[in-house]
């Protein structure tokens, strides 16, 4: 199952652990990504907390936790290859895996269809 947020993040669920990244729309809006700052594994965040930062040459964008939970794994490859965010936002450039503390938070998120409609509305 994959869900989306209005902040242009996706979360792919496997049991109670979700893998989080940013969408193709988001990477295009950011331009060439030059750095990704990730949280330390083990830290906990509430939904809406600032959890990571994506930087392009002229902008820095905060990534907010789409759900509440504990970071169980981060994607260390982004440190050396931030350009992956541009080339493979939905697959190789996942940011972190988070263990959800409240599965019901997913209910408030967008389906793929809803997200695509949301993005169309922005353009």
């Amino acid at each position: 199952m994959i869900k989306y947020s209005e902040d242009h993040e996706w979360i792919k669920m496997d049991g109670d652990v979700g893998t989080v990244g940013i969408t193709d729309y988001a990477q295009k809006a950011l331009g060439d990504v030059v750095f990704v700052e990730l949280p330390p594994a083990g830290d906990s965040f509430a939904k809406g907390d600032e959890v990571a930062v994506v930087e392009s040459v002229k902008a820095a964008s905060e990534i907010y936790a789409p759900v509440t939970g504990e970071i169980v794994e981060i994607n260390g490859t982004l440190e050396d290859a931030p350009e992956t965010v541009n080339s493979s936002p939905m697959d190789n450039a996942w940011f972190f895996k988070i263990k959800l503390s409240d599965m019901s938070e997913l209910d408030g998120m967008l389906s793929e269809e809803d997200y695509n409609a949301f993005v169309e509305g922005l353009e």
């Binding site: 030059v34 750095f35 392009s56 040459v57 002229k58 902008a59 820095a60």
Partner: peptide, 9 residues
Amino acid sequence: LSTREQHIR
């Protein structure tokens, strides 16, 4: 690395 700096952040 000017994203660290005040004119952007």
